[in-house]
Design a protein around this nucleic acid. Sequence first.
DNA 1: TATTGTTATACTCTATAACTATA
DNA 2: TATAGTTATAGAGTATAACAATA
Lengths: 150, 150
Amino acid sequence: MPNRAEECSREMLDTIPLIMCAIRAEMRRRRKPDLTVPQFRALAYLHHFPNASLSDVAENVGLMLPSMSKLMDGLVLRGFVSRREAAGDRRRIDLALTSAGHTVLELAYNAAQKHLAELLRQLDASQRAAIVRTMRVLRPIFTAAETSKN
Amino acid sequence: MPNRAEECSREMLDTIPLIMCAIRAEMRRRRKPDLTVPQFRALAYLHHFPNASLSDVAENVGLMLPSMSKLMDGLVLRGFVSRREAAGDRRRIDLALTSAGHTVLELAYNAAQKHLAELLRQLDASQRAAIVRTMRVLRPIFTAAETSKN
DNA sequence: TATTGTTATACTCTATAACTATA
DNA sequence: TATAGTTATAGAGTATAACAATA
């Protein structure tokens, strides 16, 4: 087994995008009022980092500052995000999800999760247990890869 | 174990998008001349289905016909796709990758594959073998889910 | 003077509507 | 009359440049 990492990465590359496609399709179907992908990612970021600044969100979603400013206009207008002056520094703004914002995110997540569960029912318990173990092996690797980029 | 499918789907939902993010980042880094995501997907579709019609590609990439027509203008201009009148029906066009088109796809795929392999080297052989088995269990499920949608 | 965010403007991508050519 | 694709036009979304306010 000289080069198992190569085989493993090929298998992943042939399978993961397929799964991701199914996840996205289900999330799209359920997101109540239409959300664009960057809007969705901005909400998800604010879920993980409440009271982030505009620059933080722009940086992590991958948009320029003016674009994120306009995107947030829309999310604030629709009541998914609250925007208020930061306490110590009046140049900055604190962004956070409203309860409506949390709800939108949860709806999409739960829909995708239930859809996946439905597909996984055709497997037997030991196969599902193996999947869980694999995910727990993979997650820390890619969490580390993600954070080391910033 | 009353509800293992639920746990399994949560684990997948918390891990797969992370991996996909790493794959996309690496593909973006390597795609020689800039390709948008829909352009990339159009090329990938033509790789799987040579001599597809414009409507086929539009349907599967998720664009309207005029948008795909313009997108193809760009790919033909840049030499990644050949476009010629279909044999039996002069209304239709046959689209296919040129060798340059194949090359662009392969470069992106190989870069992503090598990057993944690098990350997977920190695991031991038995863990990688388990990943391979898991991918082979999951792939047919999501291949079926994909095709049943059309 | 540097930093945070907004406004002004232009460009790209996509969609809908109208059109051409073939079946 | 229906189908495959193109052209015309308009609407989002994003970027760069210029600006305002605060540190």
